[in-house]
């Protein structure tokens, strides 16, 4: 009696499943968390395919992929790690492409703390400034480069606190433990606006472009779902979403 609707539901669920029923597993650099969630939601809605997302630092994903992690697509925060995977024959040949070019912002959770003349930064009127570890994260390297161009490395170095990745750097600033810090513009931007605290979008000429590459991993070589997702990421629709989070697209 009550079983019938359940059976119908299960059957309809089975029939509605797409050809490739298993979700595509993707590893995503933490700076791209917000846009990727939006992109995947759009993609799942239009295609009915499922995507399982893992977010973290590119270095950790690199180590995991080299050691057999089941990811099919890797969205790195830089070009170096996808290139290293390419050299190690871990990816489908010629699948590497730049999906986004990151932008850096100096941000404070306090309104009015950062002004366009960068008075606070230059005067050192703060206790701690957060940046991602320059050795590990491309956004950290870019932040260090900006401070060098502004001749502020020596003046600020004693106040640096370093996040392991850009997500942790954001966390240090958003909790107010560091009054200001260099974060990814994508983390503080939604729908084309920065809606919290105060910020300075760092001019692109102050740092090397943060090109972020994606690759189709060997695990995904025979997955139509993985290929469909990559095609979607390169589509006009996806590019406008990516740009609305402050990235440029190639």
């Amino acid at each position: 009696m009550q079983l019938l609707p359940v059976i119908c539901l299960v059957l309809s669920g089975l029939l509605a499943r797409p050809l490739w029923a298993d979700p595509v597993r993707i590893a995503v650099a933490s700076n791209f968390t917000l846009p990727m969630k939006q992109l995947v939601a759009d993609y799942e809605k239009t295609t009915g395919n499922k995507v399982s997302m893992s977010f973290g630092s590119s270095g950790k994903f690199y180590a995991q992929i080299m050691n057999g992690a089941p990811f099919q697509v890797f969205f790195s925060a830089d070009q170096a790690k996808p290139q290293a995977l390419e050299r190690a024959n871990m990816i489908v040949p010629n699948s590497r492409f730049t999906y986004a070019i990151g932008a850096l912002a100096l941000w404070s959770a306090q309104p009015g703390f950062i002004d366009t003349q960068l008075y606070t930064l230059r005067q050192g009127n703060f206790r701690k400034i957060a940046l991602a570890n320059p050795k590990l994260a491309p956004y950290g390297a870019a932040a260090a480069e900006v401070l060098a161009k502004l001749n502020l490395v020596d003046a600020t170095r004693a106040k640096w606190v370093q996040g392991e990745n850009i997500a942790q750097t954001y966390q240090f600033v958003s909790t107010g433990n560091a009054e200001l810090g260099f974060v990814a513009l994508s983390q503080i931007m939604s729908h084309g606006n920065v809606d919290r605290g105060s910020s300075w979008v760092v001019p692109a000429e102050l740092y090397q472009p943060i090109k972020q590459d994606a690759v189709l991993l060997n695990n995904g070589a025979h997955s139509p779902g993985a290929q469909a997702l990559l095609a979607f990421i390169r589509s006009e629709q996806a590019r406008s979403v990516i740009e609305s989070y402050g990235y440029q697209t190639p």
């Binding site: 630092s57 270095g59 950790k60 180590a63 701690k128 957060a130 570890n133 050795k135 590990l136 640096w160 606190v161 370093q162 996040g163 392991e164 240090f172 560091a178």
Partner: peptide, 20 residues
């Protein structure tokens, strides 16, 4: 906050090496 000599302990240093 990974500050050398202040908060960068061995476990974090190892993590840094792996990440790099």
């Amino acid at each position: 906050g990974n500050i050398p000599g202040e908060t960068r302990v061995v476990s974090v240093q190892i993590y840094d090496h792996v990440e790099a």
